Amino acid sequence: MIRFGIIGTNWITDRLIDAARQVDDFALTAVYSRTEEQGKAFQEKHEIPHLYTNLQAFVASTEFDAVYIASPNSLHAEQAILCMNHGKHVLCEKPIASNARELKAMIDAAHRNNVLLMEALKSTLQPNFKSIQDNLHKIGPVRRYFASFCQYSSRYDSYKQGIILNAFNPELSNGSMMDLGIYCIYPMVALFGKPEYVKASGVMLESGVDGEGSILAKYKNMDAVMMHSKITNSYLPSEIQGENGSIIISKISQLTDIEIRYHDGTVEDISLPQVSNTMYYEVQHFIELIQKGELESATNSFANSMIVMEVMDEARRQLGLVYPADLR
């Protein structure tokens, strides 16, 4: 049984807990909240034995072995390093850090403390991602990867009324690419490795974050096109185009309904059964790694997370998107 502590009391944590309680050997024993009132409500809602409102007391606790961090992006590195320095394994919500410099410090802390650190990017750990990997050879030489995740944010209505919520706050290292674009970038890196270069464009909002954007990544014999947005919707599927056919992905963040469409008109469904709350797979994988004594995921690896962060750092540089975390 792996005992978990939680940092973050928001909707994504609710989803994680719902998924994790379907995983064998998961136990939720502690939660940290900055406020007693919010923490108490979350504790009662999920029947969590221990509540902490002091971060130092939380990380020093002997009530849990691993921690899931779902605080604002700008706090990920500081909190993860603090937890790892106290011997805790860390599953950190995506994006794992604000920039590559922070991620390097996190990886150093993981090595130094002999603990597991993993980015909680769910899609690459789902059965259907493995199905894509296993069937990729069928479409012949890959020439283009196209991924789109454009989802109008309910918080954008408030933004247009002058209320800047977390999703559009640069102080928290937020914005479209960090929130949604990463779902397009990470599978690309996991499948094809580091691109030779990237070109980025986008729409910057007055708050100082990107509302939407596009990224072109160049590989030796193929290119990748990625679109992300929090201020518009898109209903396009994503696809991997090969010389013999294309893999069609209905939704890049969920990896449901995967099929190959061949040039002769035949269609092959390569979808595999998946649980409805797909965060299940990241928790299952993380727990299995701890139980095996492994300190790094082969899929959501340090190398992959670092390449993804470097791609986003370069894309932000081209956009002129700077976070306070970049200046620390």
Rank of each mutant, 00 (worst) to 15 (best):
N221Q: 12
K199W: 06
M226E: 05
A200F: 02
K194Y: 12
E196I: 15
G242N: 02
P187R: 07
S229Y: 01
E243L: 09
D223P: 03
L205W: 00
A200Y: 02
V189F: 09
G208L: 01
S229R: 02
L191Y: 06
D223M: 10
K251A: 15
S246Y: 05
D223V: 11
V209S: 00
V189T: 10
G193E: 11
V203R: 05
G213E: 01
S246N: 14
N244T: 09
P195A: 09
S234T: 08
A224W: 01
Q241T: 10
L191H: 06
E206D: 15
S229I: 03
G213W: 00
G211V: 03
M227D: 03
L205N: 00
M204V: 04
M204C: 05
E196R: 15
I240D: 04
M222Q: 08
S238Q: 06
G211I: 04
S250W: 10
F192R: 07
P195E: 09
V225S: 12
K218S: 15
K218E: 14
S201C: 07
K230M: 12
A217I: 03
E239C: 14
M227P: 01
S207G: 09
I248C: 08
N221I: 05
K251F: 14
Y186T: 15
V209N: 00
G245C: 05
V198G: 01
V209W: 00
K230C: 09
K199A: 07
G245L: 03
T232Y: 11
V225M: 13
I249F: 09
I252V: 11
N221R: 08
F192P: 05
Y219Q: 11
L216D: 15
I231R: 00
I252Y: 01
M226Y: 06
S238F: 02
L205K: 01
V189W: 04
G193L: 11
Y186R: 14
E206G: 10
I248W: 11
A200W: 03
E212S: 07
A190P: 06
K218D: 12
K251V: 12
G242Y: 03
M227L: 14
S214K: 15
S229N: 03
K220Y: 10
S250F: 14
G213K: 00
A190T: 12
P195W: 06
G242I: 04
G242C: 03
E196W: 13
S238Y: 03
A217R: 02
K218T: 13
S201W: 03
S207D: 07
M204L: 08
K251Y: 13
L216I: 13
V225Y: 11
E243I: 08
D210G: 07
E206N: 11
S201K: 08
S253L: 09
S234H: 07
Y219C: 07
L236F: 12
D210I: 02
D210H: 04
E206T: 09
M226W: 04
M222H: 04
K251R: 15
K220Q: 13
G213S: 10
G208M: 03
P237G: 06
M226N: 04
T232N: 13
S214P: 05
G211H: 05
M204I: 06
V198A: 08
